[in-house]
Computed example of a mutant assay.
Amino acid sequence: MPSQRSITEAEKLARAKLGGVPIHREQMAAVANIYRAASAVRQHLENTVLRDSDLTWTAFVVLWVVWVWGESETRTVAEEAGISKGTLTGVARTLEARGLLRRSKHPTDGRLVLLTLTERGEELMGRVFPAFNEEEAFVTARLGDEECGTLADLLRRVVVQVEEHGEQRRLELLDGAEPARRRSGRRPRA
């Protein structure tokens, strides 16, 4: 169901609210729309093709990484999926309980855990991915092939910027200090 608040209206209101504040308006719009697009696509895919397979976005991405790369260490899967190792542990346990993923100890380093798709996991990805890709085509239907390629390239450049320079920028902004611990948003205990 489309939102009653349009992207165009939100951008117009933000410009009015910020008035004369010196900001990078085009960059603000770009980042806001990256977020909006990612959220819209994720929600659409979770509510369509992934729902039929009882998968969350994160579970699908974990399966995808192991499906594409084959047996992988958990730290590599977490990094590739863009999630913490703690989140991966919970997702991997759920997928293992469903018979889609197998966890095993590394043969030479018992501290490491390897993830492998089971036969059932391979079958699921062989069935789900084509349907997932059809929905990728649906959500980008207003773009031509060349525009999709350009968009993918532009987004890769954003990712590379953060990967290559984000840590240095964080250190500069925080004067070399570690970031404050994240809070859940709950009030502190009395």
Rank of each mutant, 00 (worst) to 15 (best):
H106Y: 01
M28G: 08
G19K: 10
T118M: 01
D54A: 01
V66W: 03
V41C: 07
R157S: 06
G70P: 03
A137L: 04
L155W: 13
L154H: 08
I34M: 14
N133H: 15
Q168H: 07
R75K: 02
I23D: 07
E46D: 14
L55Q: 06
A59E: 13
R103P: 06
A59H: 12
E79M: 00
Q43T: 14
P179K: 07
V128N: 06
R142D: 07
G185K: 11
S84R: 11
R186L: 10
R186V: 08
G20Q: 13
D153Q: 01
T150R: 14
G19H: 15
W57K: 09
M28F: 14
M28N: 06
R186C: 12
A137S: 08
N33W: 05
S39T: 15
N33I: 04
D109L: 03
A38S: 13
T140L: 10
E163H: 06
T76W: 01
E122I: 08
G149A: 13
A81F: 03
R75C: 03
R98F: 04
R36T: 08
G99A: 03
H24W: 10
A40K: 10
N33P: 08
W64N: 05
T8R: 05
S39W: 07
S72D: 01
D175L: 13
S184K: 09
T87V: 02
D54I: 09
A92I: 04
